[in-house]
């Protein structure tokens, strides 16, 4: 079977600064990869590469065996931590937007029966994420968790080949976050998605998904911290990860710079971008 995503010796450098080096990764369709690692270890860069916002300095990325397009497209859905939904559109309008854009290149709008059909599809998607009662609200009237549900529905209605999640629950309360975990797992199973999720919360990484990728520097020169880039230091099939492995991963210097994950972390500051 062709891998859904394949990184072939990918390097990412900005000037002298090496962010990612020698990255090789093969992800099969239906895998749920969670990506953890310290700040500045290339997690977000990996996501930007997958989006097509950045192109690798060296090496190449294949999507279903074809070179990955060099700009974002409808085959890759994304949910950011913030600003994932359009403030000027209602909940229904937000989910409808993708369907309208696909069907109507000039006006970007649908009318008549085409609109009704699209609306039915959008409403079904919204009901699946638990927003069936909030169709006419604007995003500013929704809580943070509901906004992220909306962002998920908006992406999934397009049936993307891969779904990218960039710390989607980082700003949510612990209880809400647990609900969102269940929702994401259910949507992943029901829609047979391939998911890449970047998270700060290593426990979230262990709990969700089928595969945990830990990013850290492979080599480190204290005099020139930017001379070497990060790579994958752990690639764990989850389920086989026993508490000892978790402790070992947590014990790595790169990872343990984060506060100990014994309790759910407070909302992560969004200062990274």
């Amino acid at each position: 079977m062709t891998p859904r995503i394949r990184f072939e010796n990918v390097w990412m450098t900005y000037g002298d600064q090496v962010v990612l080096e020698r990255l090789n990764l093969t992800v099969a369709p239906g895998e749920f990869c969670t990506i953890v690692g310290a700040s500045g270890c290339g997690k977000t860069t990996l996501l930007r590469l997958l989006l097509g916002e950045e192109t690798p300095s060296r090496g190449r990325i294949l999507l279903d065996g074809e070179p990955l397009p060099a700009e974002p497209g409808p085959d890759r859905g994304i949910v950011f931590q913030r600003y994932s939904v359009f403030p000027h559109l209602s909940v229904l309008g937000n989910v409808l937007l993708g369907l309208e854009l696909r069907a109507s290149p000039v006006t970007g709008r649908l009318f008549g029966s085409a609109r009704r059909n699209a609306q039915e599809e959008a409403v079904a998607m919204l009901e699946a994420v638990g927003l069936g009662q909030a169709l006419s609200k604007y995003p500013t009237q929704l809580s943070g968790g509901m906004q992220q549900r909306l962002a998920l529905a908006q992406s999934l209605v397009m049936h993307p080949r891969i779904l990218l999640l960039d710390e989607p629950f980082g700003a949510l309360d612990p209880g809400i976050r647990r609900d969102m975990h269940e929702l994401v797992l259910r949507l992943w199973r029901e829609n047979n998605l391939t998911v890449f999720m970047v998270t700060h919360d290593i426990r979230e990484g262990f709990y969700l998904g089928t595969r945990l990728l830990v990013f850290d520097k492979l080599r480190y020169d204290p005099d020139e911290p930017h001379a070497y880039g990060a790579g994958i230091t752990y690639d764990l099939p989850i389920g086989q990860a026993d508490p000892g492995t978790l402790a070992q991963v947590l014990g790595r210097p790169g990872v343990s710079r984060r506060p100990p994950a014994s309790s759910p972390q407070p909302p992560a500051p969004s200062g990274e971008r």
Binding site: L51, E53, E71, P72, G73, P74, R76, G77, I78, F80, Y83, S84, V85, F86, L97, G98, L101, R102, P105, G108, A151, Q154, S155, M158, P160
Partner: peptide
Amino acid sequence: IKAQTLGAN
């Protein structure tokens, strides 16, 4: 970016 992932030109 989100708009582009929804297929917008």
